[in-house]
Computed example of a mutant assay.
Amino acid sequence: MLANEAQTLTGQVVAITGASSGIGQAVAYEAARQGATLVLMARSTDKLTALSQDVTLLSGAPAYVVPVDVGSREAIDTAVATIQEKVDRVDILLNAAGFGDFETVLDTDWETVRRLFSVDVLGTMYFSRRIASMMIDAHYGHILNVGSMAGKLPTPKSAYYSAAKAAVIQFSNVLRLELKPFGINVTSINPGPVATNFFNIADKTGHYLDNVAAFTIDPGDLAKTIVHAFGRPVREINAPTIMAIASKLYPLAPTIGDRIVMLFGNQK
């Protein structure tokens, strides 16, 4: 896809779920700087419209607004039909839609659990499935799914979110194998805490980002790493480095890992 070291996304169609905020929005801005044609998806039409105006000024290319609730299969089907009307293909899909909830297993409302898996897991899976079908016809494309370090490293008050992101990571691993014969790349993105409004919902205490400031990732920096991976056979993006290393060591010594997590990782 990207033959030159000087990366450009001019002429490439980049579709992003969860584009109205957080990682999705940061990637939209960075991809626009590279000249991408963007398909922006989220529930808020107003936020998407404002974003589309900004990114169009940056890219000089079209930016299409496609409202969708990723927690609904029917809404995804409608969104995919709209995408097919607006553009003839999708070169890159970033599944960034999702939310978290920092509660204990026993305290988490079950409707929150159901919604969490509908959006973070089933929405990611179904969107990947629908867009992969388009990419297979073209024998070309790249799907990137936002997982989390929470899917690799367990911490208290994140059981359901961790389980959801672990599912996304493993789904991406299998999807990568199945789509490789068709020339399609699949990447899982597994960040630690990113300084976005994600924590406005997930963290009811309002103190988590302050408690983990040493590990917090700037969304703009993460977006640059993600966009740099577009079109390349990158298996995973894991950040920050210290958490990436910890995720590899944890399975080797889980008892010690549990003690360390309870000592340093219980910050919610």
Rank of each mutant, 00 (worst) to 15 (best):
V27D: 01
A28Q: 08
Y29H: 15
A31F: 03
A32P: 07
G35L: 05
A36H: 08
T37D: 08
L40R: 00
M41A: 07
T45L: 12
D46P: 00
D46S: 14
D46R: 13
L51H: 02
S52K: 01
S52Q: 02
Q53R: 07
D54M: 11
D54R: 05
V55L: 08
L58R: 10
S59G: 09
S59V: 00
A63L: 04
Y64D: 12
Y64M: 09
V66C: 12
V66R: 13
V66P: 13
P67L: 02
D69V: 06
E74R: 13
I76L: 14
D77K: 10
T78P: 01
T78R: 13
T78F: 03
T78G: 02
A81P: 08
E85D: 15
K86Q: 15
K86P: 03
K86L: 14
K86E: 14
R89I: 00
D91S: 09
D91H: 04
I92F: 14
L93I: 10
N95D: 11
A96P: 02
A96Q: 11
F99P: 08
F99Q: 11
G100C: 07
G100A: 13
G100L: 08
D101G: 12
D101H: 14
D101F: 09
V105I: 14
L106S: 15
L106K: 09
D107K: 15
